[in-house]
């Protein structure tokens, strides 16, 4: 028994390495910055589309009001066709901007004037 050399187990030279107690979770999915950028991009695209459609709807609504007003004014003129194109063609022509904004229906005209008054 005593011939067996005695050997004490010791820590390795320089001590043990640090214990890996921190959780290492792999990165999954897109990062927060990418999500933020993605949302911002989606909102930009969406707002451009919405701006187009809302302006179009406002314009069409104003033209419908104009047409209703035309029908009301010209109701006692026999043979008047409401909303008839001034051109000798079937093709749809948008009114020019000056024509459109100077010939607004009563309701829209009122709001335009007051908007100007309140803003200036």
């Amino acid at each position: 028994m005593s011939s067996v050399p005695y050997k004490q187990d010791m820590p390795p030279k320089g001590g043990y390495g640090p214990i890996a107690y921190k959780r290492h979770i792999p990165n999954r999915g897109v990062s927060g910055y990418m999500m933020f950028l993605g949302c911002a991009g989606a909102m930009t695209i969406g707002m451009i589309g919405l701006a187009y459609s809302n302006r179009l709807r406002s314009k069409l609504l104003a033209m419908k009001r104009l047409r209703d007003e035309e029908a009301e004014i010209m109701s006692d003129v026999p043979g008047w066709v409401v909303g008839e194109s001034v051109y000798n063609s079937e093709r749809w022509v948008w009114p020019s901007n000056e024509e459109f904004y100077n010939l607004l229906a009563k309701k829209d005209r009122f709001s335009k004037i007051h908007e100007y008054y309140l803003h200036v």
Partner: peptide, 15 residues
Amino acid sequence: YESQTYSWFILTCAP
């Protein structure tokens, strides 16, 4: 429903 003809609100209000 009609106001989303050109862009869906899932884009417009993404978050």
